[in-house]
């Protein structure tokens, strides 16, 4: 049932990319447990505005866990204490009265902070541009049912494609590695017949680009998958490793 909480917040504030930034403390009273975490931030921001302060910048949009915008590192975990949810779906009933909550932006050299809790995740877009697609031009596709796909493969491909590109995997990983994100896309297409013609080149290009962006290497800690709001499995990373090695060893290009 609904309760009200008093909270101490420690939030990372940084004016812009050049600013050094630091933590700022805020006290909040009477926060309903029915609120979402972001609604609690709305309350705080409204308070800050009325008091003449500068509201905290944070990314958010759909607020139903699918757009992948929200990106808060809450009490040492991306998207906070619950598993399988994004920050926007996290509700205040997951916190206790009097609790101190520390909120930081995603930290990675490939995700530079823009302001406060907002980071630049365009590295993900560039990785997709490097090969995260099937090269079919529009207008000349064959009939959809002429491609038969076993249900298990379609389901597994979908499970990989469920990635929302929020970057929690990078944020959670002690190496700031993007392997889960990249492997989800590689895997989605590797499992489908449509993805086969470009399968090898895709994985080579995407991995090369991932490395260029300055993400760390994978040490298989599993933190990415454990914190992924869409619970994307580590099997996709294994599949990408396999595909990458096969591709390097077998493609004709030197």
């Amino acid at each position: 049932m609904e309760k009200n909480l008093n909270l101490n917040l420690k939030v990372w504030r940084q004016k812009n990319a050049e600013d050094k930034g630091g933590f700022q403390e805020y006290k909040l009273k009477d926060i309903s447990t029915d609120m979402s975490f972001l609604e609690m931030f709305d309350v705080l921001n409204e308070k800050l505005i009325v008091e003449g302060g500068d509201p905290i910048a944070f990314d958010h949009d759909c607020r139903e866990g699918i757009c992948g915008s929200c990106s808060m590192f809450i009490n040492g975990r991306p998207h906070g204490p619950k598993q399988g949810v994004t920050t926007c779906q996290l509700h205040m009933r997951s916190f206790n009265d009097g609790e101190t909550i520390v909120v930081e932006p995603w930290r990675a050299s490939a995700f530079p902070v823009i302001k406060d809790l907002v980071v630049n995740r365009s590295a993900f877009d560039r990785i997709i541009s490097a090969g995260g697609f099937v090269s079919v031009n529009i207008g000349n596709a064959q009939d959809a049912n002429s491609i038969l796909i076993p249900k298990v493969d379609a389901d597994e491909s979908f499970a990989a494609a469920a990635c929302i590109g929020c970057g929690a995997c990078v944020a959670a990983c002690k190496n700031a590695s993007a392997m889960l994100f990249v492997s989800a896309k590689v895997s989605q297409f590797a499992l489908l017949p449509q993805g086969q013609p470009e399968r090898k080149q895709r994985v080579l290009d995407m991995v090369a680009h991932m490395d260029e962006e300055g993400f760390g290497a994978c040490t298989n800690t599993g933190a990415c998958s454990a914190e992924c709001p869409k619970e994307i499995s580590l099997t996709h990373i294994a599949r990408m490793n396999r595909d990458y090695l096969t591709a390097e060893l077998s493609t004709e290009s030197k």
Partner: peptide, 22 residues
């Protein structure tokens, strides 16, 4: 109809039956 063809060709993982059809 063309939309579905296009989406499938570009790798959209639609739900499928056990026989592999959409």
């Amino acid at each position: 109809s063309n939309i579905i063809d296009q989406c499938v060709a570009s790798g959209v993982p639609f739900a499928r039956e056990y026989g592999g059809l959409l």
